[in-house]
Amino acid sequence: MKILTTVQNGILHILLDGEIDEYSAATARHQTDRKIDECPPCDKAYIDLANVTFMDSTGIGFLIGRYKKLQRLGIKLYVVNPNPAADKILSLAGIYTLIPKA
């Protein structure tokens, strides 16, 4: 799991690359949270799943965890570019009501 972040016009872009499962989740959580802590003031954050090749319920937990952290900081979270498989489990879990697709 690789994580790349950029900040543009008050938006924090978090690009995830790889598979999100129990094995990779600890690193993904740790690295993403560090990037969130280090980032300049933002109103929005996008988690880009374009390069996420696999994701199970651990990935849903990961998104919920980041949503809660960002909410405390007053930053609204969106999901972008889920592949059809990620889209299927995110829809099933009703995640888009909490974290909309942008």
Binding site: A25, R29, D56, S57, T58, I60, G61, F62, I64, G65, K68, I89, L92, A93
Partner: peptide, 14 residues
């Protein structure tokens, strides 16, 4: 529940 969705069984069933 902060880091876990509790969706594993629901996903397996679906």
């Amino acid at each position: 529940p902060n880091e876990r969705a509790g969706m594993g069984f629901t996903i397996m069933q679906a």
